[in-house]
């Protein structure tokens, strides 16, 4: 059986509700925990549905912690275990992982092409951001914001360009290191020629 114990703590205008789920049975269970606070809290559960519940898998004979935060004042009960069910074979972890990007570097043949394409992408973004930065009058700045699709879009672009910068510096770093190694690896050809 799964049991829930909670502990609340008020900090800086936010109530933190810590939940401990204990499963005494040997089989894993999926527990649904509902916030009893008003408002129920969002920071997280980000995955909470309209009913603000947390779904947590509790392995057999184990304790699992979860929790959420809410602006509401602490009150009891802060959370309630609404039900537990047997874990269903969801399009499990393997499918989620397969949907993520492949971290492996591309093969050498398309490597230089990919690098060129990345440079071109970065350049286009940097130019767009520079265009926004270059707007010095209110109408020009408003137009530049509109062109980019609003403040949030410019913020996202700004973040992306910061990442571009980091990646470009990493490439530069690597290139410098390799160039240095290339230099150091140069054998004394004169001496070698005399040997042969």
């Amino acid at each position: 059986m799964v049991t829930l114990t909670t502990r609340t703590r008020r900090e800086r205008g936010v109530t933190l509700v810590a939940c401990r789920l204990r499963n005494d049975a040997p089989e894993p269970r999926v527990a649904r925990v509902a916030s009893q606070m008003e408002p129920p809290g969002t920071a997280p559960p980000r995955h909470a549905g309209e009913d603000a519940t947390l779904r947590v898998t509790v392995p057999g004979n184990a304790v699992v912690g979860t929790g959420f935060a809410t602006p509401a004042e602490p009150s009891e009960p802060s959370a309630r275990l609404i039900e537990t069910e047997r874990p269903t074979e969801e399009p499990g972890d393997a499918a989620v992982v397969a949907g993520l990007s492949d971290p492996r570097p591309p093969s050498t043949e398309d490597g230089s092409l990919a690098l060129e394409a990345r440079f071109a992408d970065s350049e286009a973004r940097i130019e767009r951001l520079a265009a926004v930065a270059a707007a010095t009058t209110v109408p020009a700045a408003t137009r530049a914001l509109d062109d980019e699709g609003g403040l949030a879009a410019v913020e996202a672009l700004n973040e992306q360009v910061a990442k571009d910068r980091e990646r470009l510096l990493a490439v530069a770093d690597r290139a410098l290191t390799l160039a240095g190694r290339a230099e150091a690896a140069e054998p004394p050809m004169d001496a070698l020629e005399r040997l042969s």
Binding site: D93, A94, V96, V97, A98, L100, S101, D102, P103
Partner: peptide, 11 residues
């Protein structure tokens, strides 16, 4: 980055 390697570790 959140690629398959991070995903596999988290899984």
């Amino acid at each position: 980055g959140l690629g398959r390697d991070s995903g596999a570790a988290l899984a």
